[in-house]
Design a protein around this nucleic acid. Structure first.
Lengths: 244, 244
DNA sequence: TAGCCCATGTGGACCGACCACAGGTAGGAT
DNA sequence: ATCCTACCTGTGGTCGGTCCACATGGGCTA
């Protein structure tokens, strides 16, 4: 096993054992190198990987915010992986779109179910779903601004859709959605900008968003799932990003 | 922007432009460093990330297999990201299980649909689905060996389930499934080994596998999806990995 | 002609140094 | 006593160079 892999394995074991929790700082690179009996470059390579995976963030300087801090950004690693493989041609954008449709229509169903029948088994955040729902409505209002550029509209649209994923309460699904967003966001914006009738499309998307939120808010899982699927598929078909 | 990030961005751009395709080799670390006007450690850090993401593989020595070669292992990066975040406590195993259930039941539906109504729009691999189906049946036969240990059985079980995902023809879904497998495989094996009545469970799983393959083979999408969902949920409920 | 051996190119690992940066702190000015 | 400034210190960022292990392949030798 290569040196940086040993370092990585050690840090992963320490994470698993709870030695370092969220928000805490790893020892400095020099200290870590000495503790593990390896050189500083090897430690740095391991930390680079952790950083790319969204496990830590690094900062120079001194004080409590400097050094390598444990964070929780699963979407960073997932997004980078998807983005790089789309770049290399391994992953087709159409596959990403299909996966997004799948995950998000499921999320809508799940969200509607949770809203409709509040799960009493989650005491820490009893009304979290409604909080997310309110935030979604707020984002929806922000999209009505006629002065928005295409890119700005898409930005808010993605925020809205991310909010839907969040309502399902599955962090992995949320992370995958966020990752895919960062991976293919530029393709989506480019596709939207090519549309000659963008104004019409934007209005239709907003209207659909409202029907989706209504369905979720009233706990109608079947309708919510169906609407989301048609909403996403319709947009990608229109922009030609669905692989056809 | 940090130096290794510039290197990474450059390589990603080159990948996107098709400068280096699958199976080709990147220039050597020394050459790359000189071309980009950076030091070798910076190049190495960038390559480390690409390696962790499953974009390249590195090998020492000389000859055509040495150096950094472009590969396509999206599951490597996705798996590492999921595994590390499970280790750090960000992602719950139950969320991973839920996501797996979601993706795989969709894959079963998709596979059955494809088998039932062969898609003539994919000329390169006309009978790929049937090929995968045959392979799945073969794996199923290998699981009947009564001399298998729990770990060996689970290993084949995961291969079987991966085969299902493959039949859906979505590389991202397949990669996510593979990644999740590597991320939580040890939890699954540990859970299975705790079961007092493993022999009974194994026999039931095998029987369910057969009904699933039958449903897919006959193009019955609804049944295939339902069976897979119940199959997975049943197993995780039995082993207590579903979060309850 | 067959076999061996070493030149060569590759990544792997390390060392030591210097830099930029941000906090914290001690000192001086008011 | 208070505030401000200048410096000290610890942090990651970057670099150049060195040496090593390894695998190949071609040239040399028997």
């Amino acid at each position: 096993m290569r040196t940086h892999e040993r370092v990585l394995a050690q840090i992963e074991a320490d994470l698993r054992s709870g030695k370092w929790g969220l928000g805490e700082r790893l020892p400095g690179e020099r200290a870590l190198a000495e503790q593990l009996g390896v050189s500083r470059p090897s430690v740095r390579e391991a930390i680079r990987i952790l950083e790319a995976m969204g496990i830590v963030r690094t900062a120079v300087g001194s004080g409590p915010t400097s050094g390598a801090t444990v964070i929780d950004r699963p979407a960073a690693g997932l997004g980078a992986a998807v983005r790089l493989h789309v770049a290399s041609g391994t992953l087709a954008v159409s596959d990403v779109v299909a996966t997004r449709t799948l995950l998000e229509s499921w999320a809508a169903r799940e969200a509607a179910t949770r809203i409709g029948a509040p799960d009493a088994t989650e005491p820490p955040v009893p009304a979290a779903e409604h909080q997310y729902l309110d935030e979604a409505w707020r984002l929806l209002g922000a999209m009505d601004d006629p002065g928005l550029s295409v890119a700005e509209f898409i930005e808010r649209d993605q925020d809205f859709h991310l909010q839907l994923a969040r309502m399902a309460g599955n962090q992995l699904v949320e992370a995958i959605m966020t990752g895919m967003r960062s991976a293919v966001g530029s393709y989506v914006t480019a596709g939207a900008e090519r549309l000659p009738t963008w104004g019409t499309t934007a209005a239709r998307l907003s209207a659909e968003h409202r029907t989706i939120l209504d369905a979720i808010g009233s706990g109608d899982a079947d309708t919510a799932e169906k609407l989301v699927r048609e909403h996403i598929q319709g947009f990608y078909r229109e922009t030609g990003l669905d692989g056809t």
